[in-house]
Design a protein around this nucleic acid. Sequence first.
DNA 1: CAGATCACCTGCTTGC
DNA 2: TGCAAGCAGGTGATCT
Length: 245
Amino acid sequence: MGKTIRHAHVSSKRVTRGDWARTAESLTGATIRTVRRQGKQIFVELDRGTLYIHLGMTGKLLWNASPGKYTRAVLEFDDGTLLYDDVRQFGRVEFYSQLPPALSGTGPDALTVSFEDFYARLKKHRVGLKALLLNQQFISGVGNIYADEALFLARIHPEAPSHRISKRRAVRLHGEIVEVLKLAIQHRGSSISDYVDSAGNRGAFQQLHNVYGRAGEPCPRCGGAVKRIVVAQRGTHYCPRCQRA
DNA sequence: CAGATCACCTGCTTGC
DNA sequence: TGCAAGCAGGTGATCT
């Protein structure tokens, strides 16, 4: 915060959603006021607007790294360089002078949402639970890995209908979501193939996954085989013995 | 409103 | 060795 972007280059029209030349132009010379996060969205508040960043599947923010084949944006500061690298380009690096309301429409952050709010929101839907957790309008910040892990810890089947969840199980689920996210952060994230933090270090939480990516392996709780199904178009991992429908 | 399907991208792994 | 198919942290459009 307080730093000025001395020069910005953008080389992907995908991650900027269109006008990349103007994105770089708008960012060059801008000073950062604050940085905030809401779920998976990063809002860098500038003196002249907002820099919106979403890492998508393979996005990385790297401080003082060398640019490579997948560098899509470069922000140069007096004391270093911030790169945005993204192989698949599902991420976003966008400049807005006025933030579109749609970007602020996500639900409360999963790490801080109160149980009361969580439960009230749960009551408004009638969907499979995993699909609900992946819905960023419901709560924001839970993706495919942590949805599977939280449901495992709470012993809830990913396709359990949200409207049939007892308050007691909702309490458990809410608690496990917070726990698994905190634990994952403590272990600096899940590096399955290429995730690294801004210093280029891999996380270690993938070693502690109970079910995600472990189809066919024994369930750490009951020893039964972890199963993989498709739910909401996403690979879904769970223990059929511990997580009953 | 919910669910399925496809689309957007690129690379890696698996199986024949 | 080659090649096609399937898979991957996310989201958004479209159609039923």
